[in-house]
């Protein structure tokens, strides 16, 4: 009888922690409250945007170019396979041990994590454009650059967004362990329990989970918005289409 109530109690306490600051367990400073969570969330998003931005700068042009040339498929697939085989904790730990802590290093490590889905999806997005469509465009006199800008890019946009979405969600998740490398994100209350207490730990877990889900859903909506209307199709086709866009969108290449 008492256990469920106790659980509710802990969760209730955690929610209270998000809205109202209280004294730290170690005494002295105030912890928790909307102000602190807003600043932690801001930092969390800042490192995420920096990492995904950096990754996009490298991976998007490369993926689009390789896709346009229909070359380097092996590279695109290998990068995503290797990316999956190196656990995020190992990647961050390697950065700490060999390069040291700090915002720049963490952003760099997270960027490495973000590259594979963006690269693979951009590549696949372009290569899946019907060859006949491109052939017809070239036949009508479009230049290479026009083909990329006017045909490949718009048609690849849904998959490109899918890759970005995957990366953003992955990076939000991994940024939770950034405090071990000296970047204070929403993971800080989770990891330094001694300062924030059980309520703070749980509160941060709730906020991180919400942040990830909101990013996933929000970017999913954006992905649908950039999908050309004809490709969204009829209700039946949409359901199937979304299922498969999502398959690719997660960057889970199968080979």
């Amino acid at each position: 009888m008492s256990t469920p109530l106790a659980i509710l109690g802990i969760f209730g306490d955690a929610i209270d922690f998000i809205f109202n600051a209280r004294e730290a367990r170690t005494g002295g400073a105030e912890v928790g409250g909307l102000g602190e969570f807003a600043s932690l969330t801001g930092k969390h998003l800042l490192v995420t945007v920096a990492a995904v931005g950096l990754a996009s700068l490298v991976a998007l042009p490369l993926g689009l170019y390789l896709g346009h040339k229909r070359r380097g498929g092996f590279l695109a697939v290998s990068v995503s396979n290797v990316g999956r085989a190196v656990p995020s904790l190992v990647l961050i730990a390697l950065f700490i041990a060999f390069l040291g802590v700090g915002f720049a290093n963490v952003a760099l490590a997270l960027a490495l994590l973000a590259i594979p889905p963006i690269l693979t999806n951009a590549y696949v997005g372009v290569t899946q454009v019907d060859r006949d469509v491109i052939d017809a465009a070239v036949g009508q006199g479009l230049t290479d650059g026009q083909v990329m800008r006017q045909i490949e890019l718009p048609l690849a946009l849904p998959l490109i967004f899918g890759g970005l979405r995957t990366s953003v969600v992955n990076v939000i998740a991994t940024a939770t362990i950034a405090p071990i490398a000296g970047v204070v994100t929403l993971g800080d209350p989770i990891i330094s329990q001694s300062v924030y207490g059980d309520a703070g730990k749980l509160a941060a877990a709730i906020v991180v989970a919400l942040l990830a889900v909101v990013a996933e859903v929000g970017l999913g909506a954006a992905q649908r918005a950039v999908t050309p209307a004809p490709l969204r199709g009829t209700p039946g086709a949409t359901r199937r289409g979304r299922f498969f866009v999502k398959t690719a969108g997660k960057g889970l290449s199968t080979s």
């Binding site: 969760f11 749980l202 941060a204 877990a205 989970a209 990830a212």
Partner: peptide
């Protein structure tokens, strides 16, 4: 979608 670290700690009380 839920980050694993968050899920661990969400489950801990239960």
């Amino acid at each position: 979608t839920i980050p694993s670290l968050a899920l661990f700690f969400l489950l801990l009380p239960i």
